Computed example of a mutant assay.
Amino acid sequence: MLASSTITISRAFTLTLTFKFSLSIPSLLHSSTKTHMDSPPRSLLVSSASRSPPREVLVQDTGDGFITLQEWQGWGTVSPVPVMVSQIVHDLKSLEKNIDAQMSFAGNGGKLQGDFKVQEDKKHRATYEALGDSEKKLQFFASRQIACRLLGSRGYLCQKCWLAMEDCMCSKVKPCSLWHGMRFWVYMHPKDFLRQNNTGKLLWQLFGVQAATLCLFGIAEDEEIMWNAFKCAGKNKVWCLYPNKNAVTESVQEAFGHGSPVDIDSTPVMTAGDKTLNFVLIDGTWSNSAAMFNRLKEQAKSVWGEEKFPCISLTMGASAMHKLRPQPSWDRTCTAAAAIGLLSELQLLHEFSSHGFDEQADAVEDALVVLLEALTSRRLRMGRSVTRKVRHNRDIC
């Protein structure tokens, strides 16, 4: 699917031909965001519909129906609290009072459960159908997904690593500085937000939110921040790491090697409007990634006058996460491993060899191993299999 390359890199992640940024395979951790949420603080049991054993969760909630800026940005975001997310949270709280039914969450991704779900489902479907254009519908869909995940994860997930509190791995992750001349944008689908097996979150855990920035698909405030940065940088400083068959892709060597048109500046000060190189990592399932890339192209046409969005191809392969999370094929991998691949290939170029990309790649790889160990330990504790089922053998290189 990606352009071929003669570059080889000896790392723990065997490099092959294509890669994947999807982190939200439903069959990994069905227990990833299973908790209950009510207005006042109270202890509740998780629905038996979840595949994890019942547990009590102390929910920390002020009952005012608001998401504070501190809470919102505590999950890794840099934007102000999205207006539509706030409105949906307020509506959920109001409905809870009006029908005298408590909100409860269980299953994969903070899904509403019980009687409250029935009433809320009718309400949100009516609201969705009443929206006139597709953009408003997308924003409503994304905001509702995120609002439910926020409420369903309070008091259960660690805000930094997105793992259940008892599995928190934060103390084992060692922060690292990313080269000042580049910036990752983790363009994440709402259904991947707060998933425990998500690896994109590792990037801002390691490098900080200004060097690896979360942008949620369909959230206007997030997308505005990202595109404002792209406008300042200019089209020739923005790339998407996406194996798109219908797009012209360049290898790292072609884009940044000797004689490339990219102006590499190694000076210590890099501000948002000059030389910063911006890399978009699409963080969603393969089925969702096409819509996400199309949205990037549509916005590119609006901003730059043409639909073409520059794409970079990598020589990537299966990461250690394949042990736990099924992929369409072994040659597709996760967001963190894709970042490792980019950093590793850049390190091989003379123009970038002094920027320490090998150390930065090692830091991401180490964090990925920590995440894998945490997820594996949880599955073993719950008596679940840690063996990946091989699928689509015809796709294996």
Score class of each variant (00 low, 15 high):
Arg394Val: 05
Ser47Arg: 12
Glu351Lys: 11
Ala49Tyr: 09
Ser177Met: 04
Asp362Ala: 10
Ser43Phe: 05
Cys176His: 15
Val81Gly: 04
Gly356Thr: 07
Leu15His: 12
Ile264Tyr: 15
Gly200Ala: 12
Leu29Asn: 09
Gly234Asn: 09
Gly63Tyr: 10
Arg183Gly: 02
Asp362Arg: 13
Val369Lys: 14
Leu112Thr: 01
Gly76Val: 01
Gln73Leu: 00
Ser143Tyr: 01
Val209Ala: 11
Arg55Gln: 13
Gly356Gln: 04
Ser313Glu: 06
Trp330Asn: 05
Leu372Trp: 05
Ala291Gln: 09
Asn197Val: 02
Val238Thr: 07
Arg378Thr: 05
Gln253Trp: 04
Thr315Asn: 12
Ser329Ile: 00
Ser251His: 01
Val78Gly: 04
Glu221Phe: 06
Met226Val: 08
Phe13Trp: 08
Ser32Asn: 15
Thr333Gly: 05
Pro80Lys: 12
Ile25Gln: 10
Met165Cys: 02
Ile264Trp: 14
Pro261Cys: 09
Gly218Arg: 08
Lys160Tyr: 05
Ser344Phe: 00
Phe352Asp: 03
Leu95Trp: 03
Cys240Ser: 15
Leu216Ser: 07
Thr18Cys: 00
Gly110Val: 00
Leu150Asn: 01
His322Val: 01
Val390Ile: 11
Asn228Leu: 04
Val89Arg: 07
Cys148Arg: 12
Ile219Pro: 00
Gly155Lys: 07
Leu380Pro: 00
His258Gln: 15
Arg295Glu: 08
Gln299Thr: 15
Asp362Ile: 02
Glu307Ser: 14
Trp185Tyr: 13
Leu23Ala: 06
Glu166Met: 03
Ser48Gln: 13
Asn198Leu: 08
Leu151Arg: 02
Ser10Asp: 13
Met188Asp: 01
Ala338Ser: 15
Arg149Val: 00
Leu214Gln: 10
Val238Lys: 08
Leu23His: 10
Ala338Val: 14
Pro41Asn: 12
Lys301Met: 09
Ser104Glu: 15
Arg325Trp: 02
Ser143Phe: 03
Gly114Asn: 05
Glu298Ala: 09
Ser48Ala: 11
Thr33Arg: 13
Ser47Pro: 05
Ser52Gly: 12
Ala318Pro: 14
Leu349His: 02
Leu95Lys: 10
Arg55Ile: 04
Ala300Glu: 02
Lys20His: 13
Thr68Glu: 07
Gln145Ala: 06
Ala229Lys: 13
Val46Gly: 06
Gln70Val: 03
Phe141Ala: 01
Leu157Met: 01
Val248Leu: 12
Pro243Glu: 07
Arg394Asn: 05
Met84Gln: 14
Ser353Met: 02
Cys240Thr: 11
Thr33Glu: 12
Leu214Tyr: 12
Phe141Gln: 10
Gly63Met: 04
Leu69Met: 06
Gly65Asn: 11
Ser24His: 07
His355Phe: 08
Gly109Ala: 11
Lys389Thr: 14
Gln253Ala: 09
Gly305His: 08
Gln196Ala: 14
Ser313Tyr: 09
Leu368Tyr: 03
